[in-house]
Design a protein around this nucleic acid. Structure first.
Lengths: 127, 127
DNA sequence: TTAAGTGTACTAACTATATTAATACACTTT
DNA sequence: AAAGTGTATTAATATAGTTAGTACACTTAA
């Protein structure tokens, strides 16, 4: 369910945070569902429990999960929060557009690629 | 001409590389033009010459400039190279699209934002 | 010829961050 | 009572970025 990419320059805890955000926002993990325990996931991924703890703390801070001492961490589904999350992602999308345009990529090219990637994505999803 | 953003999490040398790439690809810096010397730019930006050197080494490795011992670094304009650079940027663009789609952003929203950003960009450029 | 400016190379040290390691405590469930 | 949970703390390690200082070879211009 969680995969760590050691080629990715970003820290492990950040990858874990992003991965869980995706699983929660997309509905794969449902509200109230129990998250894997800090220790369990640490063993599964062969990394230190502290790293998982850090990821969970961040997820809780951002409102994606909530923790109950002695019981575990649980998924929270907050649609209002998800909208904010989408805005953050769109900001990143727009930033990437500007980088491309500044470097001389034509906007028609961007539209074309967006078209292709979207078609490919929905193809995958529908399949 | 070069601005360092200390809020940016990326290393300084990387920011410098990207900034010069933009200036070269966009034609602000023309072929054969002399780059600021390692020491000069270091003083100007109040950072260590080694950091500039690292950026220049990377720019040379990627074919954006060439160095002449005792004379300086000079801009190289290689259109074939620029195409490769654009492909790299487009790959990043597509990656960002997938991240958005996975998190539930609708493709119509992406098209809309792309439209807006592009309009804004060309507005700026033409102005 | 000399001085100043240039690229380049090297080593050492410092800093910040990510990660690991080991422990401990409070709580819940069985 | 035991096992599993979150949480906190401290120390150690690893890595990357950056700074600092020095040195050498080359080019240009006074």
């Amino acid at each position: 369910m969680i995969i760590i990419d050691y080629n990715d320059k970003r820290p492990i805890y950040e990858q874990i945070v992003e991965r869980f955000q995706t699983l929660i926002v997309s509905g794969v993990l449902e509200a109230g569902e129990k998250m894997p325990s800090v220790r369990t996931l640490a063993v599964e991924l062969s990394i230190n429990p502290n790293t998982i703890q850090r990821a969970y703390t961040e997820l809780e801070r951002d409102g994606f999960i909530y923790a109950v001492k002695g019981r575990g961490n649980f998924v929270k589904r907050d649609t209002e929060l998800f909208e904010k999350q989408k805005e953050r992602l769109l900001a990143g999308f727009e930033k990437q557009i500007r980088v491309c345009l500044r470097q001389g990529v034509k906007k028609e090219m961007l539209f074309q690629r967006l078209q292709e990637v979207a078609a490919d994505f929905y193809g995958e999803v529908t399949a």
